[in-house]
Amino acid sequence: MRRGLLVEHGPLDAAGHMALDEALLDSSPEGVPVLRFYDWAGAGASDALRGVTFGVSQGIEGVEAAVRARFGGVAAAPVRRATGGGIVFHDGDMTFSFVFPWPTLSDPSLVYKDIHLAAHLGFKALGVETGLWSRPRPAGLQAECFTGPEPKDLVSPAGAKVLGGALRRRRGRGLYQGSLRPEALGVDARKARRAVAEGMALSWKALFEPLAPGPEALERAEVLRRERYETDRWNRRR
């Protein structure tokens, strides 16, 4: 069994979560997988919009248009992620991140598949059936993450998208940011967390030890929040 870390932190808004994830990517111990489940600040009703995040290369105008179309202009300010992918509306999703060793440059679709396979195993261990979407990718990029399943997404037996995510590779480490819809499987967020934690432990043969982020990561996260994720310079850069 290898050592893993289950990082616990109090509620944060979207900018705070993005900053802490990047800080963990930059500062987590070498070779140690780090799992973190988000607690959202201001989360009252489970389906309330807690935040909007979007992919590192997406244009802000299209993102804002999508937010307006869905929420009539009343929504949290979208925050640009460090990872790829499309827009995610954090309204009742179970959000989590995973920092892992990615020492050799390799096909990201295989990494994506491995992470979703871990979640699949975790749900299976809890008696919940899921699968990995295997049909070809639709033409073009999907602007929104949950428009429909894409290859290697975790799906329900009925084919509804359950888990989608996005990746960043930096200095031999990977960051995965995932958004899971528990309602698509008829489970609650707590059970979904258990399944993901169980699946990661099984797949990585790791014992995840609960731990608060260290001072170095917290300090780095504060700088990133202030100087990147809360700024127009980052969020509106294209």
Binding site: V56, S57, P108, A166, R170
Partner: peptide, 14 residues
């Protein structure tokens, strides 16, 4: 130093 970013589908690389 990381100076550029490349994105393929769903993944960004320094």
């Amino acid at each position: 130093e990381a100076v550029a970013v490349v994105e393929s589908v769903k993944a960004a690389f320094d």
